[in-house]
Nucleic acid binder design. Structure first.
Lengths: 238, 238
DNA sequence: GCAAAAGTGTTCACCGTACACCCATGG
DNA sequence: CCATGGGTGTACGGTGAACACTTTTGC
């Protein structure tokens, strides 16, 4: 067991973007320009250079494909099945990242390849390699984690309305939430800062704008309170 | 970004064992017989052979070091920092596994190396590589997961008493639980099968023995009920 | 004035919490 | 008979669930 043997090692980054205009969760995919799976859509990825941290590789893959830095990025799972792609056995460490589409303009180098946001409800039938599995796992993780960690705010603009926040939860959890209960819950946590501003250019009553107060969140954590959006997770929801 | 480069890839398996006699959670470690970290204790591991699934490598590492097969095994995290060990950059995919010490006799090949169970409260000060971090992450995962998935039974003999089950939760979660509430909760879930047997050779009233009813658990899941041991996780536990 | 979304409280049921005594067995 | 752990029920409070109307704004 004490011998080494060499291996190509890849990284893939599932980039989730949320569009507050149409309340839609999207995934950023690129079109492959070389075999295998030439012409198929794929999750952005790259190879780990020995001596470089795998986390850093993920950051650079994202930056290279999208021009974006400083975003929520977390390791997801490592896919190590030798038959996940044709040819050589490539193990891939998958990550997922979150970004607000409204506040970030991506600059993929579309001169060499196509790149686009796909609505989560309208993903191409075939993805390269086992990328459908990676995507499924990333979605599962996002759905689980959003209930008990304040990662929703990574997908929103810094200023947002309560309805926008609720729509985000509804989109990701794929269930309707009760407006009054949702607001009661959020306001009781005290992690939202009322900015004293309101929306503009809407053809109805303008909503108040809030921002996520990270300091208040950490204080809440220290005091042993839990961040939880549990609505609809109880068994007696008929 | 479209070039490959070779890499040694390792697997490490944190094997947790539980001893029902002294209500103690333990970790299985081996003593390294070769540099680096010769003479230091380490989490069992091995290298991935190209073409072999990473999951399979983990299974084989466990079997090779302990002689045990067919146990709960789940991927934990991939450690990819180039400075996690001296010398070449070795990325390691970490797993964790659960076993009942009472029902499994391990057969490590102690002729070539030392191997032993260490109480989780008495781990050697120095572990090889970044194995202290791997262990910490594994414990964290175990503590989180045991609350909402029935993995506790992987650590117990097939027949166990309610007190033994409660002690296991108390040991892992590092908090006291209320006997009556714990029993009420478990019996309301209906996933324990009363075997109609009792303990033997105890110098006090003998406890009833139960086993985990996986069929009932799956039925419960299908009906949308949640497995949850939340005691002590509420903010108003004063 | 009407369409469209913002904003706001109360009641009920369930479950997590706290808590104390009798029972069975071996020595 | 006593020491040791096994086994049981109830009252309270917090929170998730269900539910409808008024307000504000642009057109």
């Amino acid at each position: 067991m004490e011998y080494t043997s060499e291996h190509p090692l890849a990284v893939n980054c599932v980039l989730f973007g949320y569009d507050v205009q149409d309340s839609d969760l999207k995934v950023f995919l690129i079109e492959r320009v070389a075999p295998p799976f030439e012409g198929k859509w794929a999750i952005p990825g790259g190879f780990v250079i020995p001596g470089e941290s795998v986390d850093d590789t993920a950051i650079q893959v994202l930056f290279g494909e999208t021009g974006v830095k400083d975003l929520f990025l977390e390791q997801l799972y490592t896919f190590g099945n030798p038959r996940r792609g044709p040819g050589e056995h490539v193990v891939s460490v998958a990550y997922y990242a979150l970004i607000s589409i409204n506040e970030n303009t991506l600059t993929p180098d579309t001169e060499v390849r196509n790149a686009a946001w796909f609505s989560i409800s309208d993903i191409p039938d075939f993805l390269a390699f086992d990328h459908d599995q990676i995507l499924a796992k990333a979605l599962e993780r996002l759905q689980g984690k959003i209930r008990y960690q304040p990662i929703a705010f990574e997908l929103l603009p810094t200023k947002f309305s309560l309805t926008q926040l609720q729509r985000l939860y509804e989109t990701i959890l794929e269930q309707k939430l009760d407006k009054r209960n949702f607001r009661k819950k959020l306001s009781s946590m005290g992690i939202l800062q009322d900015l004293g501003e309101i929306e503009h250019d809407v053809s109805h009553r303008a909503a108040r704008l809030y921002s996520f107060n990270e300091r208040a969140y950490r204080r809440m954590q220290r005091e042993g309170f839990l961040f939880e959006i549990r609505e609809g997770s109880r068994k007696n929801s008929r």
